[in-house]
Design a protein around this nucleic acid. Structure first.
Length: 365
DNA sequence: AACCCGTGGGT
DNA sequence: TACCCAAGGGT
């Protein structure tokens, strides 16, 4: 189905349903740093596509609360897409550190360069054009097209899946239910204010139609909601059971320079887990890590001290336990290839993912 | 198509 | 505590 053409099934009841949600949104829209509030949009204020794009990338699988400060920091540092395009990749990775899913940061930089240097500094205004850019998939392309360019696009994220699976009592588990949900959103999305409509469904999902204990009494779609009528709204959408997470183990070697306490770091390979981020040198993380032989993997000969316990972290698909060793090296000790010294005041600003900050912190115990 | 890819907050 | 989940994309 082509979202750019009007839906054949936008009958009167469907149109009214959309208008009821927009009216709710006019009164209840969340105020967010990247958003133009509905009352300003009606006066002709249009959101900056750069800010819409940046926020949408940051919000991929990431909560509003976590994104806010990063968004403000990025837009203060790089006010326009051309600023971001001209930035050093390392600086972008440092600014992204802690937000997770680091391929987003690399794609963000690549996308900014494409727009600044190949597209004359302008974002494509269609879903198709947007989706051709790195880091922009079906959801993000639709969201930018609708929010920044008033294109009628079916924006489907996790909120939309939850709200519409309840509204229409779609009981097929995800991801199988995606086509039906997408069709439902397409049928519901109005010609006018498609961006506000998308954000309205998302706000509804975030504040009323929540995963657990939805506040159906406050919902503007309470009356037509089939899931509520059947009393099973809070069980939808159904999802396939997920595999359990194995535990991987490894060791990390915290090298401190005698005198100033500088910390030795190195850069991870550009792709894969924590790609392109800084790390404390260590072993690979595996399910059959041999604790006894860990020290033989130390990057330099030194008096290694093993810290009690382990640093733990949980990734998307595995748990991690890291045995932490530390040593103080005499100033002038040559570092292994690829390592650098990060001085105490600089460590916080390095492109260190959260797991590495935990490991460094553990070395103080 | 199924798997890989982070993190923090809520329950 | 352990699990769920969040404005998903790439391969």
């Amino acid at each position: 189905m082509d979202a750019s053409s009007p839906p054949l099934l936008q009958d009167q009841a469907t149109a009214q349903r959309a208008q009821e949600l927009l009216a709710w949104y006019d009164r209840n829209a969340r105020a967010l740093p990247w958003r133009v509030p509905p009352h300003e949009r009606t006066v002709g204020v249009v959101p900056d596509p750069y800010r819409v794009w940046l926020s949408e990338i940051m919000l991929q699988q990431t909560t509003v609360a976590a994104v806010k400060d990063y968004f403000l920091a990025f837009t203060a540092k790089w006010p326009k897409v051309t600023d971001l395009a001209k930035a050093e990749t390392d600086d972008v990775m440092k600014a992204w550190a802690g937000l997770g899913y680091y391929s987003r940061a690399r794609n963000l930089k690549a996308c900014a360069e494409r727009i600044a240097f190949e597209l004359g500094g302008r974002f494509p205004e269609t879903e198709e054009g947007l989706k051709a850019l790195p880091g922009i998939g079906p959801y993000t392309a639709a969201a930018i097209a609708a929010i920044a360019f008033d294109q009628r696009a079916a924006v489907v994220d996790g909120n939309v899946e939850r709200v519409l699976s309840r509204l229409h009592l779609i009981e097929e588990p995800l991801p199988g239910a995606k086509p039906a949900i997408r069709a439902a959103m397409d049928a519901l999305t109005p010609e006018k204010r498609p961006g506000d409509f998308a954000q309205a469904v998302m706000d509804l999902g975030a504040t009323i139609c929540t995963p657990r204990r939805p506040a159906c009494a406050l919902c503007p779609w309470s009356a037509p909601c089939e899931g509520r009528r059947q009393g099973i709204a809070d069980t939808l959408p159904r999802k396939a059971a997920k595999a359990e997470k194995p535990t991987r183990r490894g060791a990390a070697f915290v090298m401190l320079r005698d005198g100033d306490g500088a910390l030795a770091l190195r850069k991870r390979p550009p792709k894969g887990l924590l790609g392109g981020m800084a790390e404390v040198p260590g072993t690979v993380w595996s399910t059959d890590f041999a604790e006894e032989t860990a020290l033989s993997a130390a990057p330099v000969k030194a008096r290694w001290h093993q810290h009690l316990g382990v640093a733990t972290h949980t990734f998307t698909h595995f748990h991690l336990e890291v045995t932490v060793y530390s040593a103080t090296l005499p100033a002038g000790t040559p570092l292994p290839e690829g390592c650098w010294w990060s001085e105490p005041g600089d460590v916080e600003g390095e492109a260190l993912p959260t797991v590495m900050r935990k490991i460094i912190s553990h070395a103080r115990r």
